[in-house]
Amino acid sequence: MSYRLIQMLTVILPTILIGGFEFFRHDFLLGYLSMQTGNVFITILTFVLSLLFSSWVFHIIRIKNDQLAEEQAKRAVYEERERLARELHDGIAQSLFFLNVKLKQGDVAAASRAVSTIDHHVRQAIFNLRSTPEEDGSLNSRVIKWISEWSSFSGIDAKVDFEIPNDLFTIKEEVQIFAIVQEAFANIRKHSGATQAHIDFKGTQEQWQLRIWDNGCGFDITLLSERKYGISMMRERARQVGAGFQLSKSELGGTKIIVTKEMQK
């Protein structure tokens, strides 16, 4: 049912029902109902009709909103898949170009490293695509499962501390947060040289905070490329859920990412 039809029914139905009753009362019921009794009756009738009609209208609106939220969530997942596909394409294209150059130069060792890099790109992309945010279950269970698989895949020990209510985020927000986690842990695997990674995710209805850090080599902020490390993407995803994004060195010597949001009261 379209919003235009709902709008028309909202105007027409109460007018016809209540106005029709008033005409019928004045023409046929004045001898049976006093004005006072009639006024009480029309008041009750108006209340019942308004309650029934508003419940029906809001039920339809709720269904429409749920459908819209589902479509937005699917779109966010498709966008994430497209990003992973572009990342896979770019990474493999660069590695293949490097492989071709080294083979022409006869540098077998460098060519072997390029093949290994391509293999890592493909494995990481397949791993990410297999763990999409639209799977059943809460955000907590999906992230914990994904990090457990990531730890087995990367060989890096991962510590997880989650205290997040299951209904704290919308589906679209979960997609963005899940993508931040994936990007951060992909950076740890590819660039940090870490042996340990930590994720701490705690929150309430008033505020929440996501922290990810490692014991790797850290970074030089003056030489850091936001594009290379996907930092601009994580910062943008944090902005889309209304959260702040901070990047710093961790107490363990590696990198720390903090995403924080305070709910508006």
Rank of each mutant, 00 (worst) to 15 (best):
G38R: 07
L33S: 13
Q67V: 00
T15F: 04
N39S: 13
T15I: 04
L49H: 12
A114H: 10
H26V: 14
E134S: 04
G106H: 10
G106M: 09
L99P: 02
T132K: 02
D27M: 12
V101K: 00
G20L: 06
N128V: 04
A109Y: 14
E80R: 03
F127V: 00
D119H: 11
L51Y: 03
V48G: 03
P133Q: 11
G38W: 09
L45S: 00
I42W: 02
I60C: 01
A109Q: 14
I18L: 14
E70L: 07
A110P: 03
Q67W: 01
V57Q: 05
E134Q: 02
W56V: 08
R83M: 08
Q105Y: 14
R62G: 09
E71G: 02
F127R: 04
L30D: 14
L52V: 08
R123K: 11
Q124F: 01
Y78C: 08
F127W: 00
E79I: 12
T117H: 06
F47Q: 12
A114N: 13
D107M: 08
T117V: 07
A93G: 08
D66W: 01
F97Y: 04
I18G: 02
L17I: 12
V115A: 10
A76C: 10
E22V: 15
V101H: 00
E87L: 03
F21G: 07
K104E: 13
Q36L: 07
N39K: 14
T46F: 00
L99Y: 03
F28Q: 13
Q124P: 00
F98E: 09
S116N: 02
Q94K: 12
L88G: 01
E79Y: 10
E70Y: 08
L96R: 01
Y32V: 06
A114D: 12
I61K: 15
D90T: 08
N100G: 11
L45W: 01
K102M: 11
I44S: 02
N39Y: 14
T46P: 00
